[in-house]
């Protein structure tokens, strides 16, 4: 009798676990929040000014210690390179060497941890920075970044990742004139 009950309970329990996934199932596939593939291109602009046009393109890939790392090149309207950096995933964590802050130049940092929830924080190993998860919805997650200095209680940099698109907007000091994704091409 006991054995029969177990056989009945286990599938019911499994069904319950599947159903409980709901909103955050998508977050199991963290790569969807930043599709890294050679040729993928994003075009951003400040919605009020075309001069702020910026292109981000994944131009190369390399294997380092068994991890596939993707090189992103950020250029402006004239084609001049603004910045370069590598991005790669380990599980639900997105690491980067991209210098969103000038101080981050070349330094590897945990740019985004997609397993965290709204209000969670973590410290970056570099330059005494902390990151706070500002919002988490079914298809998007926003991270805020700020140095751990006295009198800093508000992020300087915000990044929003959207499922299937990558980074769809970023603010750097000048919100609400944020830089937004205006076009993208994924291979």
């Amino acid at each position: 009798m006991l054995k029969i009950n177990k056989l009945l309970i286990l599938p019911i329990l499994a069904m319950f676990l599947f159903n409980s996934c709901d909103d955050y199932c998508e977050f199991q596939f963290s790569e969807e929040f930043f599709p890294l593939e050679i040729g993928n291109t994003w075009i951003y602009s400040d919605y009020e000014n075309i001069a702020s046009y910026e292109k981000w393109e994944i131009v190369d890939t390399m294997i380092d210690a068994g991890i596939e790392k993707y090189q992103m090149v950020n250029s402006n309207l004239d084609g001049n390179i603004v910045a370069k950096g590598f991005f790669y995933f380990i599980g639900k964590k997105l690491y980067s060497t991209y210098p969103f802050y000038s101080e981050w130049e070349g330094k590897e940092h945990l740019l985004a941890n997609f397993s965290l929830n709204k209000g969670d924080t973590y410290n970056l190993d570099i330059d005494d920075f902390r990151v706070i998860i500002i919002s988490k919805k079914q298809n998007s997650i926003t991270f805020g970044y700020m140095p751990n200095y006295t009198w800093r209680d508000f992020p300087d940099l915000w990044l929003t990742f959207e499922k299937g698109k990558g980074i769809t907007e970023y603010h750097y000091h000048w919100s609400p004139g944020k830089v937004t994704l205006t076009d993208y091409l994924l291979y």
Binding site: D46, S52, E103, Y149, T150, Y172
Partner: peptide
């Protein structure tokens, strides 16, 4: 130490807005 900070350099200029 309480008010110590690391110098941050500007990343952009007003040219960003033309």
């Amino acid at each position: 130490h309480s008010y110590k900070f690391k110098k941050e350099l500007n990343k952009y200029t007003p040219a960003k807005y033309g």
